[in-house]
Nucleic acid binder design. Structure first.
Lengths: 116, 116
DNA sequence: GTATTATATATAACTTCCTTATATATTTCA
DNA sequence: TGAAATATATAAGGAAGTTATATATAATAC
């Protein structure tokens, strides 16, 4: 993994929770939604997404049901749990704290200095 | 590793480079400096710092010389290289981009909205 | 004077997260 | 009919971080 692609490490679960907070979705749709919301920046691969969802379900952050329908492929629909909501709130604060501290060390960017 | 301590992943080299950009320092001093500048938030352990420094030296981002002196323990002093400076600049931009995208998804914090 | 703490560097074993590669199957479009 | 998009999944391997351990000197406390 090239050094410059290290920045996203650890953000996968909170990104998923954030998308699911707006309504339940199946895995593939979560991927597309993240890509759409970030103009392609967060392009998650299936090999990262699905194992992560499995782990999150095991941790009680999300729950799933299989959905079958008229001319549509069978798919597993995920929704956020109460514990997932709490994790999302706590995780958001953690990330904000981290960003504050990081940019305090690196020098605050214009946006954080309020010069947007 | 608890989930909430995942946020710092990948930030180690750039934090080190950022400290060394202000002048050369030995490993232990880098650790203390990071802790001081972040009011204890970035409390790096020796087992993370030293292997990282070794890797960074191998990558040409820092260079080191052993320093011995009057009543002081022998220590390895690191300084940032030209390549390290470039990496610091590029890495800072990467982190800013990431933060922008992440908080766009999570909802911007007060500081980024300019309400500090 | 001896013990503890702080300073200082280092490696080994292990876990976690991510990547690359591969597999399978359905639906839509050219 | 063949390719691309949709949809889920696992295996193998690499990179980053944690916990544990080792070693050694200098400063401070008792």
């Amino acid at each position: 993994m090239p050094d410059l692609q290290q920045v996203r490490k650890g953000s996968t679960p909170i990104l998923i929770l954030s998308v699911l907070a707006d309504g339940k979705k199946h895995g593939y749709a979560i991927m597309r939604e993240l890509e759409a919301r970030s103009q392609g920046y967060f392009s998650m691969t299936a090999a990262l997404l699905y194992p992560t969802l499995h782990q999150m379900e095991q941790d009680g952050l999300v729950q799933s049901t299989w959905e079958e329908g008229n001319g549509v492929r069978k798919r597993k629909v995920y929704s956020i749990t109460a514990a997932g909501g709490e994790r999302l709130a706590a995780g958001s604060m953690e990330w904000r704290q981290f960003a504050e501290q990081l940019f305090h060390i690196l020098g605050k960017p214009a946006a954080i200095r309020g010069e947007q």
